[in-house]
Design a protein around this nucleic acid. Structure first.
Lengths: 107, 107
DNA sequence: ACTATACTTATGTAAATGCTTAACCAATCC
DNA sequence: GGATTGGTTAAGCATTTACATAAGTATAGT
């Protein structure tokens, strides 16, 4: 599924660093790679993972490839997490209500 | 980092399935493993990944280990994503404002 | 005591990851 | 046109994953 790829992409500090940079605006490959403690090809591989996951879109003009965030994939991941968190809290509410009925019937 | 482990844990459908089950309340290992298309030891491994990531807490009583969600790790992952999404939207706002000033000065 | 249940540990393996170095285009620049 | 810059491809390698199967341990039921 797409979620697999998105979460997998987010599970690496180098890839998250790339995203954090892109949040401040588009950038060419070399600029994204420079701060990372690895070779250019390695950085490109990470970029590829981000692009596969739909988190980043890129476009090549002349010899420079410009990269930008696509927030929609990010948003889908967030929604998955949020739905579970909400479901969990609902459950706690129901449990609380149930415990309350026990307390009532015991008095 | 902890985020690495949390996102990595979420990147697998079997592990997400376990979480979705646990959202409806605690369950023993066997019940979590039953619906998964794999052996018990394999399922236990996934459970281990979830526990390492802090997404699940377990407790053994007699011979049965009961598992439950810990929503805090989930929440931290959600916050990371959300912070980036918000930063991105801010940037778009600033960009929009800038474009507006251009439009003004041109009239 | 004996069996079934619920895990747990050990071991092996095929595939995926995360990196490296080296070699290779293709646009710019001088 | 020759060097430089920006990126891409290729090949190789150590590690980690995601399973499997087989065997073991401890508790519960009869």
């Amino acid at each position: 599924m797409q979620l697999d790829q998105v979460f997998h992409a987010l599970a690496d500090p180098a890839r998250r660093a790339i995203l954090e940079r892109l949040v401040r605006g588009p950038a060419p490959v070399t600029e994204l790679a420079r701060p990372l403690p690895m070779s250019l090809p390695a950085a490109m591989q990470h970029l590829g993972v981000l692009e596969q996951a739909g988190l980043v879109r890129t476009r090549k003009v002349g010899r420079v490839r410009t990269c930008a965030i696509d927030p929609r994939a990010l948003s889908r991941a967030e929604q998955w997490i949020n739905a579970r968190r909400v479901a969990w809290e609902h459950r706690l509410d129901r449990l609380g209500a149930y415990l309350d009925t026990l307390k009532d019937s015991e008095s």
